[in-house]
């Protein structure tokens, strides 16, 4: 009786129940974790494999590309010219052998050796990953802050203010990042001299690249959140909160926001991976190192191990990001904690 009454009593927080783990739920959690881990590994190997084969299916062979790249030419080569290159890089082995070799290497943490830089791909990526992650995470955080500020200030205000907010979002979401980058460069680095033109990896040099990536993303996140936010503000529980005498700001921050950010949280998982691989524009404009430009160069030169390695890293970031998104859901929506 008492148990039933407790369960029915809304005063008892449901999460408290789930925080008292039984032996069975512990096993379930471990199993859940193992399944997630196995799936993650599967996703990573699949991503690397697809990239590996996709690159081999592109017309033209790798030895030709390597020779043309070394000489800055675009021509065919004789079998005698190609043979030593094929041998050096192991292209003369059967494709299946090359693939098995590559995948088994992945499990040993060996991503292969770059065709063009002659060093392990782990080193190529390792040297560039930190500035990339800094740029990516900073851009995502900035985009969130920008979009939330615009949402909180402009949704369901006077028609004029609301219009400014939604126009701003539509505009920034549709601006090409290169254009944003160059405008920021000309205005803040050349005209006002607030930030350096050659960014490098310092704090001052990171501001403009971060804004270049964050502005369009902020517009995009803002657009999805705005629709949700408008809907939520019409919900009965908002009216209830207002009738309890809660201030407008309080209602927006405490109630409406929590209910309307879920779509944007979902998108953030995607945005994180996309920012990481698409950072090349910000990197090029501001002379900043990072895996974005390494990826573009590697694709251009058909440096198969490097491209596959970066795809692997980006896929890994997607996996982690989606895990974080799942966790964020639970934190935001307390109903999910029970299940």
């Amino acid at each position: 009786m008492t148990t039933a009454a407790e369960a029915a009593d809304p005063a008892v927080p449901i999460p408290a129940l789930s925080r008292a783990p039984s032996a069975r739920s512990g096993v379930r959690a471990v199993r859940w974790g193992l399944v997630k881990l196995a799936l993650a590994i599967l996703v990573l190997v699949a991503a690397a494999s697809v990239t590996f084969f996709a690159q081999l299916l592109v017309p033209g062979d790798r030895a030709t590309t390597i020779l043309n790249q070394q000489t800055g030419r675009a021509q065919l080569w004789s079998a005698a010219d190609l043979a030593p290159v094929n041998h050096q890089f192991g292209f003369d082995r059967p494709l299946a052998v090359q693939y098995v070799d590559y995948v088994s290497g992945l499990f040993r943490g060996d991503l292969g050796t770059s065709y063009t830089q002659h060093k392990p791909v782990t080193e190529v990526i390792g040297a560039q990953i930190v500035p990339s992650l800094v740029l990516t995470v900073a851009a995502l955080v900035t985009a969130w802050v920008l979009s939330l500020v615009v949402i909180l200030v402009t949704v369901k205000r006077r028609r004029f203010v609301t219009a400014i907010g939604s126009t701003w979002e539509a505009l920034t979401a549709s601006l090409p990042p290169y254009w944003i980058g160059v405008v920021l460069l000309v205005v803040f680095a050349v005209e006002l001299r607030v930030f350096p033109v050659i960014g490098g990896t310092g704090v001052a040099g990171t501001v403009l690249p971060v804004l270049t990536l964050a502005l369009p993303l902020a517009g995009f996140l803002g657009q999805v959140t705005r629709d949700e936010f408008e809907k939520v503000l019409d919900q009965p529980f908002i009216t209830t909160a207002r009738t309890r005498g809660m201030s407008d700001t309080g209602v927006r921050l405490k109630h409406a926001l929590r209910h309307s950010v879920l779509p944007a949280v979902t998108l953030s998982g995607w945005a994180l991976g996309s920012l990481l691989s698409g950072a090349v524009i910000a990197e090029n404009v501001f002379g900043r190192p990072g895996i974005g430009q390494v990826l573009v160069v590697a694709v251009n030169t058909r440096d198969v191990p490097t491209v596959s390695g970066i795809v692997l890293v980006v896929a890994g970031v997607y996996v982690i990001a989606n895990l974080l998104v799942d966790l964020a859901y639970v934190l935001i929506d307390s109903r999910l904690r029970a299940s």
């Binding site: 592109v58 033209g60 590309t65 021509q75 251009n300």
Partner: peptide, 11 residues
């Protein structure tokens, strides 16, 4: 594209 150029696609 540069990849096509180097790969000999137009050679």
């Amino acid at each position: 594209t540069q990849a096509e150029t180097f790969s000999g696609k137009y050679s």
